[in-house]
Design a binder for these strands. Structure first.
Lengths: 205, 205
DNA sequence: GGGCACATTAGACCGGCGGTCCAACCCGTG
DNA sequence: CACGGGTTGGACCGCCGGTCTAATGTGCCC
């Protein structure tokens, strides 16, 4: 977490720092990103940076929080599907997935940041930040799965943790694959249902 | 690739270097591993290390190649299923998966290395090494998928590249989940068919 | 056996990294 | 005006991966 002082800064200076950090992190990934370059680009001194943030990881986590937060905001709130029937359940998820991918496609640096975030999973320096975001996402995942089980859309014979891992893994793989292709609205609209269909088949009772 | 000179070294010194590197890489992951520590632990000088290897990435790739090579050797050759019928096709794959996981379970450092290898995917310093291993694995994946399609076990309405990505992602997620659990032979034997079953459902026509 | 050429080794050195530290400066208050 | 806490600049630290070269083996030819 940034120190409270950071939020007292003039908005434009906060922006300058966050912008520089987003550029650097999305362009190089966490490990290869240089805090010194961010500091230069933001036009502040090292002392100030460490006066506002605990260090590189803290800055990264904050940028990710802010940008991914904006992303989810732009895509609307997480729906916890209340469907009583499998088809309805899965179509709710399809809609949401489409909204997220659309939002991502409209902002390449954020997409790069998200990609980096999701692949940096094993980095020991990031456990803290990862856990934090995981903790924010997990309850939703769990709720969604339980709702799915209630709608008879999701199997009950496998530990929830494993289901989450698998969905996460499939989603990640699909996202990565998507991001390496040309992303026009048309194909996206065609592919997302295919993706959800595969997840659906894997999870169905 | 290590320089040819490396292979002319007395076997025990090669072993010392590879052992030190395996310990360090499996314990810290690629980024956090320290080449200097490996050098100290192996009891050689920096000059020698760089005389035998191009650098950190080269050493890592070599260790991974050797250790994962041993792993696959221990698990027997990649089967390209020749089944003519879905059930036979999937049971061939189940057997193989079980053999690999068994081999992994018997050697924690190699398991850690494999975990690190698979999660380090986005590291720009490793693209070379990643591509190399991918190139070695891809043809087998493709053959297996095509064989699966021939056995009417795998759908044909989705690009092969996407299928591979999804299978890879699911496999990775399952592996990671497995490695965070207690790995006794019993549960493994129960879980692997469930995994393969999920992959099967996602891929079936 | 002596001299030479080449393979090998040791480790000082380089720029850059993330992170620490403290003197100097700014600015509101008494 | 003087003080004192909030803020800033940037020198400094230990470590990183990587380079370079002088010294040291080592085997071969005359």
């Amino acid at each position: 977490m940034p120190r409270p002082r950071f939020h007292k800064l003039p908005a434009e200076q906060q922006q300058a720092i966050l912008h520089a950090a987003l550029e650097e992190f999305s362009g190089h990934g966490f490990n290869a990103a240089s805090l010194n370059r961010i500091i230069d680009a933001a036009g502040i001194s090292k002392g100030s940076m460490y006066y506002y943030f605990d260090g590189k990881e803290d800055l990264y986590a904050h940028v990710a929080r802010v940008e991914l937060g904006r992303l989810f905001e732009a895509a609307g709130p997480f729906p916890v599907p209340s469907a009583r029937e499998p088809n309805a359940f899965w179509s709710t998820l399809t809609d949401y997935y489409l909204r997220i991918m659309g939002a991502l496609a409209s902002s390449p640096p954020v997409a790069a940041l998200a990609r980096g975030w999701v692949t940096a999973s094993a980095n020991p320096a990031l456990v803290q930040a990862q856990k934090e975001m995981e903790a924010a996402l997990l309850p939703w995942f769990e709720q969604a799965l339980v709702a799915g089980q209630r709608a008879r859309a999701v199997r009950k014979d496998v530990p929830t943790g494993l289901l989450i891992a698998v969905v996460f893994g499939m989603g990640q793989a699909m996202d990565m694959w998507l991001m390496t292709q040309e992303l026009d609205e048309e194909t996206l609209r065609k592919l997302v249902p295919v993706f959800i269909g595969m997840i659906r088949k894997a999870l169905s009772p």
